[in-house]
């Protein structure tokens, strides 16, 4: 009996366990090759994974597009900078922030978890309005959010150094703790999508009228998804700067919008597996293109693709997927337990 229950539980959480196993296998494979460059690629991919999974929580579950999530990344990124940079460095680089923050020196993991909160709070405030929108109006107003955060942060010199970069974040990420952050993000997203709230949000995505008729408050569900999503994206932005080691507002602009959306869309917007596999697939593609830009040898001649090949390649892949496989490589499905007979 107990065995059965364990098996049933495993089957239930298999969509997230399977993804964790895939990430684990990749991590082990990279450790075995002992290639430092690949390790960095993995860590960056996992930081992006937290962001893409966070983006998925809103876009995937509610079906409402957002171009504004890099704004939440930026908020998380600056928040972790204020919390984790050692006070003696902050006294020099950021002399005018609140004294309490200037003296703060929070450990990295709690700091990263806290860093999502400003993003979540901001998302709640603006979400009160934005959650009433869908389609193009949502796309444009989330883009507006991105612009607002960009304008404010790039002019808030005392706290952000404007367009300059803030340095001194501890680069604490390893292949294993970044794997841990990936698990954290996937568990949050999976728990949400399996919950009553997640189901209600998905119902509103599939059919607004039917969802409303069965008692789903669509605006409220979108707001909940938006806040949770902003929190996770904020945490992801924080982790991302611990990978780079510096914060600059330029990091969180159109390029970031495009790359996170490409990852989600190529994987498949409507499933967690899509978010995760899309991140892996696009990371692999970018690495290939980056190697092409670096040049390779055929016989005695070195052939190098021009700078920008990466971005052009990404744009083409995104268009091809939109045209030929609009539901992404996963087709919007999760990875299901492979050994049991299908339930009728």
């Amino acid at each position: 009996m107990a065995e059965n229950r364990a098996l049933a539980l495993l089957r239930r959480v298999w969509p997230v366990v399977s993804l964790a196993l895939i990430l684990l296998v990749i991590a082990i494979a990279i450790r075995l090759t002992d290639d430092i460059v690949l390790e960095d690629v993995y860590i960056e991919a996992l930081a992006k994974l937290v962001v893409v999974v966070g983006l998925y929580i809103f876009v995937g579950n509610t079906g409402v597009i957002s171009f504004g999530h890099p704004a939440f990344m930026a908020m998380g990124a600056y928040a972790t900078a204020w919390l984790t940079i050692p006070p003696n460095i902050k006294r020099i680089s950021l002399p005018n922030i609140w004294p309490a923050l200037a003296e703060a020196h929070v450990a990295v993991i709690p700091a990263n978890l806290l860093a999502g909160l400003p993003a979540a709070a901001f998302a709640f405030l603006v979400g009160l309005g934005i959650s009433r929108l869908a389609g193009i109006a949502a796309g444009i107003s989330t883009f507006g959010l991105l612009m607002i955060v960009r304008v404010v942060y790039s002019n808030w010199e005392d706290w952000t150094l404007g367009f300059s970069t803030i340095m001194g974040q501890p680069q604490y990420l390893t292949i294993w703790n970044s794997f841990g952050w990936g698990i954290f993000a996937m568990v949050v997203a999976f728990a949400y999508q399996e919950s009553r709230l997640g189901l209600a949000a998905r119902a509103s995505r599939e059919d607004e009228v039917a969802a409303r008729a069965t008692g789903v408050n669509i605006a409220r569900q979108r707001l909940i998804a938006f806040v949770l999503s902003a929190y996770l994206v904020g945490v992801g932005g924080a982790i991302y700067v611990h990978f780079i080691g510096t914060v600059s507002i330029e990091t969180f602009y159109v390029d970031m919008v495009v790359i996170t959306l490409v990852m989600l869309i190529v994987g498949g917007i409507n499933s967690l597996a899509g978010a995760v596999l899309g991140t892996i697939a696009i990371t692999a593609l970018i690495e290939m293109l980056r190697n092409l830009e670096g040049g390779f040898e055929i016989g005695a001649t070195v052939i190098a693709a021009p700078r920008g090949t990466q971005e052009i390649g990404l744009a083409i892949v995104m268009l091809l997927i939109l045209i030929y496989r609009p539901k992404g490589i996963t087709g919007g499905r999760e990875i299901t337990w492979p050994f049991a007979p299908r339930r009728r």
Binding site: V262, I265, E311, M318, L319, L322
Partner: peptide, 12 residues
């Protein structure tokens, strides 16, 4: 919304 995303890709 998909058309909008497509045009973002074209712009990029």
């Amino acid at each position: 919304a998909t058309l909008l995303v497509g045009s973002v890709a074209l712009s990029y």
